[in-house]
């Protein structure tokens, strides 16, 4: 279980977060509160390891999430004792702690002002810049957050995390073309990220169904993105789900009599036969994944439960349509 303490816990479900934070008191007791650089025991064993500090950081995040502020503060103090209060990453962690314990908006404003004063002194402090943007977003000042994020990306354009955040912010505002652009930037930095390919496909699909101009072009591009995500990752549930949705939508759009003229772009939409075959493949794969995952076969337990349920629901609505 400690292995999951070595990775950032933001994506974990609440029960795992609770489990992790419940380990905190024992873990904090079992490790020494201060590590002296010169001790007798350092002769035969490493006095400290990078894992220990990672554990502290992630433990602190889990504890803050579950409301165990005492343990979180203890983690923060130990990290501060080791790395000093003016470490950039620790400044961000301390800000995060203050954000979490803030009771009202006035306290949050104060935290925001603190970030501003830090950034005035040293504008290249990346963790604090990110925290400031996250706080702006948390305070529902989305436009300001987008502006700040764009400024940040001007100075460090190779930060994939920031581009992904920008894409999410744009998507939350319904600005799909900008969001697509930001995600394409992410893919320039990490071209093999299969989940980002799927995410881009989802945003393209959202752009297509939101009724913007050129929806067929968006759908065709979306199909390509989902296909790429499947190409990068065998049995990718999310990719097949998206592929099924997009091909089905494009096929129903095609069958209507008012057929659009072929787009004149270099990448034309695939013809109906290809679409049908893609749709069939996606359906077959999805039903296989759902069947094996629900049966709990060995080697098929990795899928998220909610995703499997969603895929099952999609297959069932499809089956109803056919039987009608």
């Amino acid at each position: 279980m400690t292995s999951s303490l070595l990775h950032p816990p933001a994506h974990l479900p609440p029960n795992v977060a609770l489990q992790l934070s419940q380990q905190a008191p024992t873990l904090l007791q079992s490790t020494p509160s201060a590590i002296s650089p010169y001790s007798l025991s350092s002769l035969w064993s490493a006095a400290e390891s990078a894992e220990l500090w990672m554990t502290y950081e992630n433990l602190m995040l889990s504890c803050l999430r579950t409301g165990d502020e005492q343990s979180a503060h203890q983690c923060l103090e130990r990290l501060t004792a080791r790395f000093g209060a003016d470490n950039e990453r620790l400044m961000a962690l301390r800000g995060l702690f203050q954000e979490a314990v803030a009771t009202d908006d006035a306290a949050l404003k104060q935290v925001l002002e603190e970030y501003d004063t830090i950034l005035k002194k040293d504008s290249s402090n990346i963790p604090i810049t990110k925290r400031r943007i996250a706080l702006l977003k948390s305070l529902k000042k989305t436009t300001e957050a987008i502006t700040a994020l764009n400024q940040f990306l001007d100075s460090s354009p190779s930060d994939a995390e920031a581009w992904a955040e920008l894409a999410d912010l744009y998507a939350s505002q319904g600005m799909y073309p900008q969001s697509i652009f930001a995600l394409e930037e992410v893919l320039l930095i990490t071209p093999y990220a299969w989940n980002i390919h799927a995410r881009l496909g989802e945003i393209l699909y959202m752009a297509a169904i939101s009724g913007e101009a050129g929806s067929e072009k968006y759908l065709a591009e979306s199909i390509r993105r989902f296909c790429r995500s499947i190409e990068l990752c065998d049995d990718y549930l999310r990719g097949y789900y998206g592929l099924k949705l997009t091909t089905a939508r494009l096929l129903t759009g095609r069958s209507q009599p008012s057929r659009q003229a072929k787009s004149d772009s270099a990448l034309a939409t695939p013809d109906s036969k290809t679409l049908e075959r893609l749709n069939e493949t996606a359906t077959a794969k999805l039903s296989e994944i759902v069947r094996r995952s629900v049966a709990g076969e060995a080697g098929w337990e990795g899928f998220t439960k909610s995703e499997v349920i969603a895929a099952k629901a999609l297959l069932e609505t499809d089956a109803v349509k056919i039987s009608r």
């Binding site: 933001a10 995060l96 954000e99 963790p127 990110k130 977003k137 948390s138 995390e161």
Partner: peptide, 10 residues
């Protein structure tokens, strides 16, 4: 890239 620990909204 999707959980984004740097931008976590605690």
């Amino acid at each position: 890239l999707e959980s984004r620990p740097g931008f976590v909204d605690i």
